[in-house]
């Protein structure tokens, strides 16, 4: 009798939860707006701030019921806020620039609630945690920037290049490793024999400045190039080179307005990389619309889009990443 009661209770609970899932999945089919949770930890960065504005604007245009959660790089604050929103129900979750390693609890909560996460620049490889993650092609970024150095320096063989990275950022870590490999393959010597690590993005510019200045103190005219994983630190490296009257060239990634201005000025800053975030967001929104229409999930879980090398030839035509919106 007790066993029968338990089975009946279990069946009732299962039926209730399944009907809940079905109701959640079909809420937008019944004329109700698509319920979307969007979150980013990087809202204090220029690109993150643009993403918040752009997603809010698209939600308005498409009639989504949007809950936007801005994390300020504080996962202890952001993750429970997103999980709480998931508990209140949603059709879709959007993740902007927040690495999967930092949102394990959100991914679990979304899986339990059967809500797909559509992500942008949130991992460097395919993961089951996301219905899709669209990011930029790190190999192409490394190849393009190392190629720019090779083109300007003539031949990388015998040249000394410093590589500056920042391990906690998966994208920077990956492209710095790829750049180091590409430079070694081209015959260059890596200054200090390894990637120089910046500890904090907040002090990236001053840390990179000190790294390059100290290296040049120890090895006057000892650098032919500096490869840096992001523009802010690249600007510090560029300043150290100009103060030391070095002709070495610097490459960065991000296409910030300050980097573009320096490229146009024709000093040590040689090139940077424009990442097509507006196009990637459009693609992500198309994926969400397809899901809204007939619950179709993207065929591939990971996409890496090509980027554009920004140098003196095209710097004038590029919209800086901090002026996107």
């Amino acid at each position: 009798m007790r066993i029968k009661f338990k089975i009946a209770a279990l069946a009732a609970a299962t039926a209730l939860s399944l009907s809940g899932c079905a109701a959640s999945a079909s809420s937008s089919d019944n004329g109700k707006p698509l319920k979307v949770i969007a979150f980013t930890s990087g809202n204090q960065t220029p690109v993150g701030a643009w993403w918040v504005k752009a997603v809010t604007s698209k939600a308005k245009d498409l009639g989504w019921d949007l809950t936007m959660i801005q994390g300020d790089f504080d996962f202890q604050k952001m993750n429970p806020a997103v999980e709480s929103a998931i508990g209140r129900g949603a059709d879709v979750i959007l993740d902007g620039y927040t690495d999967i390693a930092s949102i394990g609890s959100i991914v679990s909560a979304a899986k339990d609630a059967n809500i797909p996460i559509f992500a942008m620049d949130s991992s460097t490889k395919e993961t089951d945690g996301f219905a899709v993650n669209i990011t930029t092609n790190q190999q192409q970024i490394a190849d393009a920037t190392v190629g720019a150095l090779a083109k300007t320096l003539g031949d990388l063989k015998g040249k000394t290049v410093m590589v500056i990275g920042h391990d906690p950022h998966p994208g920077i870590r990956m492209r710095a490793d790829l750049a180091k490999k590409a430079l070694i393959a081209a015959g260059a010597t890596i200054a200090g024999d390894d990637i120089q690590k910046v500890k904090s993005p907040a002090s990236g510019r001053t840390e990179a400045l000190a790294l390059v200045a100290d290296y040049l103190s120890a090895h006057p005219n000892g650098l032919d190039g500096v490869w840096v994983g992001w523009d802010d630190a690249a600007l510090g490296a560029s300043k150290a080179l100009s103060e030391a009257h070095s002709n070495a060239k610097v490459t960065g990634v991000d296409a910030t307005s300050e980097a573009i201005a320096q490229i146009k000025a024709g000093g040590n800053f040689l090139a940077t990389i424009e990442q097509p975030w507006p196009k990637i967001l459009d693609k992500l929104v198309q994926n969400v619309s397809a899901y809204q229409k007939d619950r179709t999930l993207p065929k591939t879980k990971f996409e890496a889009d090509d980027t554009t090398l920004v140098d003196s030839s095209n710097a004038a035509n590029i919209t800086p990443s901090d002026k996107l919106g």
């Binding site: 204090q44 904090s200 907040a202 002090s203 510019r205 001053t206 400045l209 802010d232 600007l235 510090g236």
Partner: peptide, 16 residues
């Protein structure tokens, strides 16, 4: 002086 030294200013500059 830090802003003048770097030729730029940001919200977190020199936080360390």
């Amino acid at each position: 002086l830090l802003a003048a030294r770097l030729g730029s200013a940001s919200a977190v500059q020199g936080g360390d």
